[in-house]
Design a protein around this nucleic acid. Structure first.
Lengths: 208, 208
DNA sequence: TTATTAATTTAACGAACGTTCATTTAATTA
DNA sequence: TAATTAAATGAACGTTCGTTAAATTAATAA
Protein backbone atom coordinates (compact mmCIF):
# COMPACT_ATOMS: atom_id res chain seq x y z
CA UNK A 1 0.00 0.00 0.00
CA UNK A 2 1.07 3.57 -0.62
CA UNK A 3 -1.24 6.46 -1.49
CA UNK A 4 -4.69 5.78 -0.13
CA UNK A 5 -7.87 6.29 -2.17
CA UNK A 6 -9.49 9.63 -1.30
CA UNK A 7 -6.43 10.92 0.57
CA UNK A 8 -6.09 14.70 0.65
CA UNK A 9 -3.03 16.60 1.82
CA UNK A 10 -4.98 19.50 3.26
CA UNK A 11 -7.12 17.19 5.35
CA UNK A 12 -4.13 15.24 6.61
CA UNK A 13 -2.22 18.43 7.44
CA UNK A 14 -5.06 19.79 9.53
CA UNK A 15 -5.55 16.42 11.24
CA UNK A 16 -1.88 16.44 12.19
CA UNK A 17 -2.29 19.92 13.68
CA UNK A 18 -5.41 18.99 15.59
CA UNK A 19 -3.99 15.77 17.00
CA UNK A 20 -0.60 17.27 17.86
CA UNK A 21 -2.24 20.15 19.71
CA UNK A 22 -4.36 17.83 21.75
CA UNK A 23 -1.57 15.39 22.56
CA UNK A 24 1.04 18.06 23.34
CA UNK A 25 -1.42 19.74 25.70
CA UNK A 26 -2.32 16.51 27.41
CA UNK A 27 1.08 14.87 27.81
CA UNK A 28 3.61 17.57 27.04
CA UNK A 29 5.69 18.02 23.90
CA UNK A 30 8.57 15.81 24.97
CA UNK A 31 6.32 12.97 26.06
CA UNK A 32 4.54 12.70 22.73
CA UNK A 33 6.11 10.67 19.93
CA UNK A 34 5.72 11.09 16.19
CA UNK A 35 4.33 7.55 16.07
CA UNK A 36 1.71 8.51 18.64
CA UNK A 37 0.58 11.49 16.59
CA UNK A 38 0.60 9.45 13.41
CA UNK A 39 -1.36 6.68 15.06
CA UNK A 40 -4.14 9.04 16.04
CA UNK A 41 -4.18 10.63 12.60
CA UNK A 42 -4.43 7.18 11.06
CA UNK A 43 -1.19 7.29 9.13
CA UNK A 44 2.42 6.13 9.44
CA UNK A 45 4.93 8.33 11.27
CA UNK A 46 6.92 8.92 8.11
CA UNK A 47 3.88 10.50 6.43
CA UNK A 48 4.07 13.44 8.84
CA UNK A 49 7.34 14.49 7.25
CA UNK A 50 5.43 15.32 4.08
CA UNK A 51 3.94 18.23 6.02
CA UNK A 52 6.44 19.22 8.70
CA UNK A 53 10.23 18.93 8.47
CA UNK A 54 10.44 17.74 12.07
CA UNK A 55 8.64 17.50 15.38
CA UNK A 56 9.86 20.86 16.62
CA UNK A 57 8.27 22.68 13.67
CA UNK A 58 4.86 21.26 14.52
CA UNK A 59 5.09 22.91 17.92
CA UNK A 60 6.43 26.19 16.57
CA UNK A 61 3.67 26.34 13.98
CA UNK A 62 0.94 25.68 16.55
CA UNK A 63 2.23 28.36 18.89
CA UNK A 64 2.81 30.87 16.12
CA UNK A 65 -0.70 30.33 14.85
CA UNK A 66 -2.23 30.80 18.26
CA UNK A 67 -0.35 33.98 19.08
CA UNK A 68 -1.11 35.52 15.69
CA UNK A 69 -4.80 34.84 16.16
CA UNK A 70 -4.78 36.18 19.69
CA UNK A 71 -3.06 39.42 18.72
CA UNK A 72 -5.17 40.21 15.70
CA UNK A 73 -8.42 39.39 17.49
CA UNK A 74 -7.45 41.58 20.41
CA UNK A 75 -6.72 44.53 18.16
CA UNK A 76 -10.06 44.04 16.47
CA UNK A 77 -12.13 43.70 19.62
CA UNK A 78 -10.62 46.30 21.93
CA UNK A 79 -11.97 49.50 20.47
CA UNK A 80 -12.95 51.78 23.37
CA UNK A 81 -11.18 55.07 24.05
CA UNK A 82 -11.55 55.40 27.80
CA UNK A 83 -8.86 53.45 29.71
CA UNK A 84 -11.32 51.89 32.14
CA UNK A 85 -13.54 50.74 29.30
CA UNK A 86 -10.51 49.42 27.49
CA UNK A 87 -9.39 47.50 30.57
CA UNK A 88 -12.83 45.96 30.88
CA UNK A 89 -12.80 45.08 27.18
CA UNK A 90 -9.37 43.53 27.54
CA UNK A 91 -10.43 41.40 30.49
CA UNK A 92 -13.57 40.24 28.73
CA UNK A 93 -11.72 39.57 25.50
CA UNK A 94 -9.01 37.55 27.22
CA UNK A 95 -11.53 35.34 29.01
CA UNK A 96 -13.71 34.93 25.94
CA UNK A 97 -10.85 34.13 23.59
CA UNK A 98 -8.94 31.79 25.87
CA UNK A 99 -11.76 29.90 27.52
CA UNK A 100 -12.57 28.10 24.29
CA UNK A 101 -8.97 27.35 23.39
CA UNK A 102 -7.66 25.57 26.47
CA UNK A 103 -5.11 23.47 24.62
CA UNK A 104 -3.56 26.36 22.70
CA UNK A 105 -3.34 28.47 25.84
CA UNK A 106 -1.84 25.67 27.86
CA UNK A 107 0.78 25.03 25.18
CA UNK A 108 1.62 28.71 24.88
CA UNK A 109 2.33 28.97 28.56
CA UNK A 110 3.95 25.62 29.15
CA UNK A 111 5.96 24.66 26.15
CA UNK A 112 7.99 27.77 25.53
CA UNK A 113 10.71 25.82 27.27
CA UNK A 114 10.53 23.12 24.60
CA UNK A 115 11.36 25.61 21.87
CA UNK A 116 14.78 25.89 20.33
CA UNK A 117 16.28 29.40 20.42
CA UNK A 118 14.90 30.67 17.12
CA UNK A 119 11.31 29.59 17.70
CA UNK A 120 11.53 30.76 21.28
CA UNK A 121 12.51 34.27 20.26
CA UNK A 122 9.64 34.50 17.80
CA UNK A 123 6.96 33.33 20.22
CA UNK A 124 8.32 35.25 23.20
CA UNK A 125 8.21 38.39 21.09
CA UNK A 126 4.55 37.85 20.22
CA UNK A 127 3.69 37.26 23.84
CA UNK A 128 5.48 40.40 24.84
CA UNK A 129 3.45 42.34 22.26
CA UNK A 130 0.27 41.07 23.87
CA UNK A 131 1.47 42.05 27.34
CA UNK A 132 2.22 45.51 26.03
CA UNK A 133 -1.40 45.94 24.92
CA UNK A 134 -2.50 45.56 28.53
CA UNK A 135 0.37 47.54 29.98
CA UNK A 136 -0.46 50.51 27.74
CA UNK A 137 -4.03 50.50 28.95
CA UNK A 138 -2.83 50.58 32.55
CA UNK A 139 -0.37 53.40 31.84
CA UNK A 140 -3.18 55.46 30.32
CA UNK A 141 -5.36 54.75 33.32
CA UNK A 142 -2.61 55.91 35.67
CA UNK A 143 -2.03 59.08 33.66
CA UNK A 144 -5.69 60.03 33.74
CA UNK A 145 -5.83 59.20 37.45
CA UNK A 146 -8.63 56.64 37.28
CA UNK A 147 -6.51 53.66 38.25
CA UNK A 148 -4.68 53.24 41.54
CA UNK A 149 -1.67 51.22 40.47
CA UNK A 150 1.63 50.81 42.28
CA UNK A 151 3.55 49.34 39.37
CA UNK A 152 2.11 48.84 35.87
CA UNK A 153 4.35 45.89 35.09
CA UNK A 154 3.36 44.00 38.21
CA UNK A 155 -0.30 44.81 37.58
CA UNK A 156 0.03 43.59 33.99
CA UNK A 157 1.45 40.26 35.06
CA UNK A 158 -1.03 39.89 37.92
CA UNK A 159 -4.04 40.55 35.69
CA UNK A 160 -2.83 38.22 32.94
CA UNK A 161 -2.16 35.45 35.43
CA UNK A 162 -5.56 35.85 37.03
CA UNK A 163 -7.38 35.80 33.70
CA UNK A 164 -5.41 32.99 32.13
CA UNK A 165 -6.01 30.94 35.24
CA UNK A 166 -9.61 30.43 34.20
CA UNK A 167 -8.43 27.54 32.07
CA UNK A 168 -7.16 25.61 35.07
CA UNK A 169 -10.69 25.04 36.35
CA UNK A 170 -13.26 25.87 33.66
CA UNK A 171 -14.81 22.95 31.82
CA UNK A 172 -17.56 23.53 29.30
CA UNK A 173 -20.98 22.42 30.44
CA UNK A 174 -20.21 23.38 34.02
CA UNK A 175 -22.33 25.23 36.53
CA UNK A 176 -21.46 28.74 35.27
CA UNK A 177 -22.10 30.24 31.85
CA UNK A 178 -19.20 31.78 29.95
CA UNK A 179 -20.90 35.16 30.11
CA UNK A 180 -21.24 34.96 33.89
CA UNK A 181 -17.59 34.01 34.21
CA UNK A 182 -16.59 36.87 31.95
CA UNK A 183 -18.57 39.25 34.17
CA UNK A 184 -16.97 38.02 37.36
CA UNK A 185 -13.42 38.20 36.07
CA UNK A 186 -13.95 41.64 34.52
CA UNK A 187 -15.26 42.89 37.83
CA UNK A 188 -12.36 41.45 39.82
CA UNK A 189 -9.81 42.88 37.40
CA UNK A 190 -11.25 46.39 37.57
CA UNK A 191 -11.51 46.35 41.33
CA UNK A 192 -8.00 44.96 41.72
CA UNK A 193 -6.69 48.10 40.04
CA UNK A 194 -8.56 50.44 42.31
CA UNK A 195 -11.53 51.07 40.06
CA UNK A 196 -14.75 51.06 42.04
CA UNK A 197 -17.49 50.08 39.58
CA UNK A 198 -20.00 52.71 40.73
CA UNK A 199 -17.37 55.46 40.47
CA UNK A 200 -16.87 54.87 36.79
CA UNK A 201 -20.52 54.34 36.02
CA UNK A 202 -21.37 57.67 37.63
CA UNK A 203 -18.69 59.52 35.71
CA UNK A 204 -19.90 57.82 32.56
CA UNK A 205 -23.47 58.98 33.27
CA UNK A 206 -22.37 62.52 34.12
CA UNK A 207 -20.47 62.71 30.86
CA UNK A 208 -23.60 62.16 28.77
CA UNK B 1 35.59 0.96 40.47
CA UNK B 2 32.58 0.54 42.74
CA UNK B 3 31.99 2.27 46.03
CA UNK B 4 33.80 5.59 46.06
CA UNK B 5 35.86 6.79 49.02
CA UNK B 6 33.87 9.20 51.14
CA UNK B 7 30.58 8.37 49.48
CA UNK B 8 27.50 8.91 51.63
CA UNK B 9 23.98 7.77 50.83
CA UNK B 10 22.29 10.72 52.47
CA UNK B 11 24.36 13.18 50.49
CA UNK B 12 23.74 11.36 47.22
CA UNK B 13 20.02 11.10 47.90
CA UNK B 14 19.69 14.81 48.50
CA UNK B 15 21.81 15.58 45.44
CA UNK B 16 19.47 13.45 43.34
CA UNK B 17 16.51 15.42 44.68
CA UNK B 18 18.13 18.76 44.08
CA UNK B 19 19.26 17.94 40.56
CA UNK B 20 15.97 16.27 39.57
CA UNK B 21 13.97 19.24 40.78
CA UNK B 22 16.06 21.64 38.80
CA UNK B 23 16.09 19.58 35.61
CA UNK B 24 12.40 18.66 35.72
CA UNK B 25 11.51 22.34 36.17
CA UNK B 26 13.78 23.43 33.36
CA UNK B 27 13.04 20.82 30.72
CA UNK B 28 9.95 18.98 31.93
CA UNK B 29 9.74 15.53 33.48
CA UNK B 30 9.45 13.60 30.23
CA UNK B 31 12.36 15.41 28.61
CA UNK B 32 14.82 14.58 31.38
CA UNK B 33 16.59 11.23 31.37
CA UNK B 34 17.92 9.23 34.27
CA UNK B 35 21.37 9.49 32.71
CA UNK B 36 21.06 13.27 32.63
CA UNK B 37 20.20 13.41 36.32
CA UNK B 38 22.97 10.96 37.15
CA UNK B 39 25.46 12.94 35.12
CA UNK B 40 24.77 16.11 37.05
CA UNK B 41 24.92 14.27 40.36
CA UNK B 42 28.26 12.77 39.34
CA UNK B 43 27.20 9.16 39.38
CA UNK B 44 26.02 6.45 36.98
CA UNK B 45 22.32 6.17 36.15
CA UNK B 46 22.01 2.80 37.82
CA UNK B 47 23.10 4.30 41.14
CA UNK B 48 19.88 6.29 41.34
CA UNK B 49 17.94 3.05 41.74
CA UNK B 50 19.52 2.61 45.16
CA UNK B 51 17.41 5.57 46.27
CA UNK B 52 14.30 5.59 44.11
CA UNK B 53 12.60 2.55 42.58
CA UNK B 54 11.99 4.43 39.33
CA UNK B 55 11.86 7.82 37.67
CA UNK B 56 8.19 8.39 38.47
CA UNK B 57 8.82 8.07 42.21
CA UNK B 58 11.37 10.87 42.11
CA UNK B 59 8.68 13.19 40.78
CA UNK B 60 6.03 11.99 43.21
CA UNK B 61 8.39 12.44 46.12
CA UNK B 62 9.35 15.98 45.08
CA UNK B 63 5.73 17.04 44.70
CA UNK B 64 4.62 15.36 47.90
CA UNK B 65 7.38 17.08 49.81
CA UNK B 66 6.51 20.47 48.41
CA UNK B 67 2.81 20.22 49.10
CA UNK B 68 3.38 18.96 52.64
CA UNK B 69 5.67 21.89 53.36
CA UNK B 70 3.25 24.37 51.85
CA UNK B 71 0.30 23.10 53.83
CA UNK B 72 2.00 22.93 57.18
CA UNK B 73 3.63 26.35 56.76
CA UNK B 74 0.33 27.91 55.80
CA UNK B 75 -1.39 26.53 58.87
CA UNK B 76 1.40 27.88 61.02
CA UNK B 77 1.52 31.35 59.53
CA UNK B 78 -2.15 32.19 59.01
CA UNK B 79 -3.26 32.93 62.52
CA UNK B 80 -5.61 35.95 62.39
CA UNK B 81 -9.27 35.71 63.32
CA UNK B 82 -10.81 38.42 61.14
CA UNK B 83 -11.52 37.21 57.58
CA UNK B 84 -9.99 40.26 55.93
CA UNK B 85 -6.85 39.92 58.01
CA UNK B 86 -6.75 36.23 57.19
CA UNK B 87 -7.09 36.94 53.48
CA UNK B 88 -4.24 39.41 53.66
CA UNK B 89 -2.14 36.89 55.58
CA UNK B 90 -2.93 34.24 53.02
CA UNK B 91 -1.91 36.45 50.11
CA UNK B 92 1.31 37.47 51.80
CA UNK B 93 2.08 33.93 52.82
CA UNK B 94 1.51 32.57 49.32
CA UNK B 95 3.80 35.14 47.73
CA UNK B 96 6.46 34.76 50.41
CA UNK B 97 6.47 30.98 50.35
CA UNK B 98 6.34 30.51 46.59
CA UNK B 99 8.62 33.28 45.42
CA UNK B 100 11.66 31.50 46.77
CA UNK B 101 10.68 28.08 45.49
CA UNK B 102 10.12 28.67 41.78
CA UNK B 103 11.08 25.18 40.70
CA UNK B 104 8.83 23.39 43.17
CA UNK B 105 5.91 25.63 42.30
CA UNK B 106 6.42 25.21 38.60
CA UNK B 107 6.57 21.44 38.95
CA UNK B 108 3.48 21.34 41.14
CA UNK B 109 1.46 23.19 38.56
CA UNK B 110 2.90 21.69 35.41
CA UNK B 111 3.72 18.10 36.04
CA UNK B 112 0.54 16.81 37.60
CA UNK B 113 -0.12 15.49 34.11
CA UNK B 114 3.04 13.40 34.27
CA UNK B 115 1.80 11.54 37.33
CA UNK B 116 0.36 8.07 37.16
CA UNK B 117 -3.12 7.71 38.71
CA UNK B 118 -2.04 6.90 42.26
CA UNK B 119 0.44 9.74 42.62
CA UNK B 120 -1.94 12.08 40.89
CA UNK B 121 -4.70 11.39 43.38
CA UNK B 122 -2.38 12.03 46.32
CA UNK B 123 -1.03 15.32 45.03
CA UNK B 124 -4.36 16.58 43.71
CA UNK B 125 -5.84 15.96 47.14
CA UNK B 126 -3.15 18.03 48.83
CA UNK B 127 -3.66 20.84 46.37
CA UNK B 128 -7.37 20.75 46.99
CA UNK B 129 -6.74 21.04 50.73
CA UNK B 130 -4.73 24.18 50.11
CA UNK B 131 -7.46 25.66 47.93
CA UNK B 132 -9.94 24.97 50.70
CA UNK B 133 -7.93 27.07 53.14
CA UNK B 134 -8.48 30.09 50.91
CA UNK B 135 -12.06 29.24 50.05
CA UNK B 136 -12.97 29.05 53.74
CA UNK B 137 -11.56 32.51 54.33
CA UNK B 138 -13.67 33.89 51.50
CA UNK B 139 -16.82 32.15 52.78
CA UNK B 140 -16.28 33.73 56.20
CA UNK B 141 -15.79 37.11 54.58
CA UNK B 142 -19.04 36.75 52.68
CA UNK B 143 -20.94 35.67 55.77
CA UNK B 144 -19.74 38.66 57.74
CA UNK B 145 -20.51 40.94 54.80
CA UNK B 146 -17.03 42.42 54.42
CA UNK B 147 -16.27 40.85 51.05
CA UNK B 148 -18.22 41.45 47.86
CA UNK B 149 -17.87 38.12 46.13
CA UNK B 150 -20.03 36.67 43.36
CA UNK B 151 -18.78 33.12 43.64
CA UNK B 152 -16.27 31.90 46.24
CA UNK B 153 -14.93 29.14 44.02
CA UNK B 154 -14.20 31.47 41.13
CA UNK B 155 -12.62 33.98 43.50
CA UNK B 156 -10.47 31.24 45.02
CA UNK B 157 -9.14 30.18 41.64
CA UNK B 158 -8.66 33.76 40.48
CA UNK B 159 -6.70 34.75 43.57
CA UNK B 160 -4.52 31.65 43.48
CA UNK B 161 -3.75 32.16 39.80
CA UNK B 162 -2.88 35.81 40.32
CA UNK B 163 -0.58 35.07 43.24
CA UNK B 164 1.12 32.03 41.76
CA UNK B 165 1.75 34.04 38.61
CA UNK B 166 4.45 35.98 40.41
CA UNK B 167 6.84 33.18 39.57
CA UNK B 168 6.45 33.71 35.85
CA UNK B 169 8.23 37.05 36.03
CA UNK B 170 10.02 37.46 39.36
CA UNK B 171 13.76 36.91 39.37
CA UNK B 172 15.79 37.49 42.50
CA UNK B 173 17.97 40.56 42.38
CA UNK B 174 15.42 42.44 40.30
CA UNK B 175 14.15 45.98 40.61
CA UNK B 176 11.56 45.22 43.31
CA UNK B 177 12.12 43.85 46.79
CA UNK B 178 10.17 40.77 47.87
CA UNK B 179 8.46 42.84 50.58
CA UNK B 180 7.31 45.42 48.05
CA UNK B 181 5.96 42.69 45.78
CA UNK B 182 4.16 41.09 48.72
CA UNK B 183 2.55 44.46 49.50
CA UNK B 184 1.38 45.01 45.95
CA UNK B 185 -0.13 41.58 45.53
CA UNK B 186 -1.82 41.68 48.94
CA UNK B 187 -3.38 45.01 48.02
CA UNK B 188 -4.62 43.79 44.64
CA UNK B 189 -6.08 40.64 46.16
CA UNK B 190 -8.03 42.53 48.83
CA UNK B 191 -9.33 45.09 46.36
CA UNK B 192 -10.31 42.41 43.85
CA UNK B 193 -12.70 40.99 46.44
CA UNK B 194 -14.35 44.30 47.12
CA UNK B 195 -12.37 45.23 50.21
CA UNK B 196 -11.45 48.90 50.16
CA UNK B 197 -8.30 49.19 52.28
CA UNK B 198 -9.36 52.34 54.15
CA UNK B 199 -12.71 50.76 55.04
CA UNK B 200 -11.09 47.96 56.91
CA UNK B 201 -8.41 50.08 58.49
CA UNK B 202 -11.03 52.43 59.87
CA UNK B 203 -13.12 49.61 61.25
CA UNK B 204 -9.97 48.16 62.76
CA UNK B 205 -9.23 51.50 64.41
CA UNK B 206 -12.82 51.94 65.59
CA UNK B 207 -12.74 48.52 67.19
CA UNK B 208 -9.87 49.45 69.48
C1' DT C 1 40.79 -9.53 61.62
C1' DT C 2 36.83 -11.15 59.45
C1' DA C 3 32.07 -10.76 57.98
C1' DT C 4 28.62 -7.77 56.71
C1' DT C 5 26.47 -3.93 54.88
C1' DA C 6 26.47 0.37 52.01
C1' DA C 7 27.50 2.63 47.77
C1' DT C 8 28.70 2.37 43.51
C1' DT C 9 30.37 0.55 38.90
C1' DT C 10 30.14 -1.78 34.28
C1' DA C 11 27.56 -4.21 31.08
C1' DA C 12 23.61 -5.40 29.08
C1' DC C 13 18.32 -5.80 27.99
C1' DG C 14 14.53 -4.92 24.89
C1' DA C 15 11.84 -1.12 23.59
C1' DA C 16 11.10 3.23 21.75
C1' DC C 17 12.81 7.40 19.72
C1' DG C 18 13.17 10.98 15.46
C1' DT C 19 14.23 10.64 10.99
C1' DT C 20 15.55 9.01 6.10
C1' DC C 21 14.87 6.52 1.94
C1' DA C 22 13.26 3.80 -1.68
C1' DT C 23 8.98 2.24 -3.22
C1' DT C 24 4.06 2.10 -4.35
C1' DT C 25 -0.36 3.66 -5.58
C1' DA C 26 -3.95 7.53 -6.62
C1' DA C 27 -5.03 11.60 -8.83
C1' DT C 28 -4.03 15.10 -12.09
C1' DT C 29 -2.06 17.06 -16.24
C1' DA C 30 -0.37 16.96 -21.07
C1' DT D 1 -3.26 7.28 -22.92
C1' DA D 2 1.20 8.53 -21.03
C1' DA D 3 3.78 11.31 -17.92
C1' DT D 4 3.85 13.66 -13.82
C1' DT D 5 2.81 14.92 -9.29
C1' DA D 6 0.73 13.99 -4.64
C1' DA D 7 0.20 11.07 -0.72
C1' DA D 8 1.28 7.50 1.52
C1' DT D 9 3.79 2.94 2.96
C1' DG D 10 7.29 -0.14 5.12
C1' DA D 11 11.82 -1.03 6.35
C1' DA D 12 15.72 0.50 8.28
C1' DC D 13 19.33 3.83 10.63
C1' DG D 14 21.86 4.90 14.69
C1' DT D 15 20.67 6.66 19.27
C1' DT D 16 18.70 6.91 23.50
C1' DC D 17 15.53 5.38 26.85
C1' DG D 18 14.29 3.19 31.75
C1' DT D 19 15.68 -0.50 34.12
C1' DT D 20 18.08 -4.88 35.88
C1' DA D 21 21.90 -7.79 37.33
C1' DA D 22 26.31 -9.06 38.73
C1' DA D 23 30.60 -7.50 40.32
C1' DT D 24 33.54 -4.49 43.10
C1' DT D 25 35.18 -1.59 46.64
C1' DA D 26 34.62 1.26 51.17
C1' DA D 27 32.99 1.54 55.63
C1' DT D 28 31.21 -0.58 59.67
C1' DA D 29 30.21 -4.28 63.09
C1' DA D 30 31.35 -8.59 65.30
Amino acid sequence: MARIAGSDGEVTRSEIRKVSLSLFAQYGYAAVSMRQIAGQVGVQASAIYQYYPNKQQILVSLLQNHMDGLLSACHEEITAKDPVDRLEQFARFHIRYNINRPDEVFLSYMELRSLEPEGFATIADLRSKYETVLKSILRDGIKSGVMKIDDPHVSTMAILAMLTGVNTWYRSGGRLSQKKIENMYASMVLKSQGIVPSDHDEKEAAHV
